[in-house]
Design a protein around this nucleic acid. Structure first.
Length: 308
DNA sequence: TATTGCGCACTAG
DNA sequence: CTAGTGCGCAATA
């Protein structure tokens, strides 16, 4: 129930910001949601992450900064394919389930959007890399040092993410506009951390070969895929905590990035996000199982008990 | 003060 | 060329 509300709010907020010609970044979104609906930035952040995973909201790197887009509106002009119906169908089911189950409320908005979202979902990945730019590297350099400390917490998935991110909140960032409110700080930090972290990782391990891919990789992929893998706090927790640098610096970039990159390059192009998981699974057999099963439920399974 | 509105430049197609 | 995006400033509550 709350989820649908948040979805609506966030989507609406993004839309508003876009109308204002303001960058729909996490900070603004959280701020506006709180202003208008009184929800905690923290919570908003969590919900937003969730939406990203569901691909209801797209996270993109634009000009070196993170932006959020309404999947229903994003770049349909560049590519609209009918074949999406195929790949879309699968995701669509998931979406509908998620939406309907929660949306008993009757989000008419969603009903309408739902159709569009299908297409976008497939394109989602593309949208990101399209926007991504090499600039980030430059921008990120400054924060690179700071982000490092909070390597893994990034997006443990909507479910757990709150805690980890919060912890990392110390180095807050460039925007640093956090007023100093308790809750605010958490959210702000989270935002910044999330934002800063991704870019930070890239340059480290990844050569300028394909910044776009990387960007998209980290987010689009992480959002969609990683969460699934990482979803298991118990399993990954150890590695993550023990060797954060390792996983971020080596595991992802070397193995996942490369492998996925290629796969996604062609497969993704076809808007087969489902397939994306396959290649990924190769790297992590264990997770494969989860992915396969959970794929449809990607949305729901994440134990986002709403704890955050 | 924070939030909103909008001109303008920029980029991708 | 069009369409989308976001900075930066000014206007507003």
């Amino acid at each position: 129930m709350s989820e649908s509300k948040y979805r609506e709010w966030i989507l609406d907020t993004i839309d508003s910001l876009r109308s204002r010609k303001a960058r729909p970044d996490l900070e603004r979104i959280c701020r506006m949601v709180r202003r208008r609906h009184g929800s905690e930035p923290d919570r908003t952040c969590a919900e937003l992450e969730k939406l990203i995973q569901e691909q209801t909201v797209l996270k993109v790197n634009y000009k070196g900064s993170i932006s959020y887009r309404n999947a229903a509106k994003v770049q349909r002009r560049s590519r609209k394919k009918d074949d999406v119906s195929l790949a879309t169908a699968a995701r669509r089911s998931a979406m509908e389930e998620a939406s309907h189950s929660d949306l008993s409320n009757g989000d008419s908005a969603f009903g309408a959007v739902d159709q569009d979202e299908e297409d976008l979902e497939g394109d989602t990945s593309m949208a990101m890399d399209t926007d991504s730019n090499p600039d980030e590297e430059g921008a990120e350099e400054s924060r690179d040092g700071q982000d490092r400390p909070s390597p893994s917490p990034q997006r443990e998935g909507a479910s757990v993410q709150c805690a980890p991110i919060r912890a990392a909140s110390a180095p807050c960032s460039p925007s640093g506009s956090r007023p100093g409110s308790g809750p605010n700080c958490s959210a702000g930090s989270a935002l910044d951390c999330a934002a800063s972290q991704k870019p930070g990782e890239r340059p480290n391990s990844l050569p300028p070969s394909s910044p776009a891919v990387l960007t998209h990789n980290e987010w689009a992929y992480d959002s969609a895929v990683s969460p699934v893998e990482r979803q298991h706090p118990g399993m990954q927790k150890d590695k993550v905590e023990l060797k954060p640098a390792d996983h971020s610096g080596t595991t992802i970039p070397s193995a996942l990035t490369n492998g996925k990159k290629e796969a996604e390059s062609r497969e993704d192009s076809s808007s087969l996000s489902s397939d994306q998981l396959v290649p990924d699974s190769t790297a992590r057999p264990d997770e494969v199982r989860n992915v396969s099963d959970g794929r449809l439920q990607t949305v729901s399974p994440p134990p986002e008990n709403g704890e955050c």
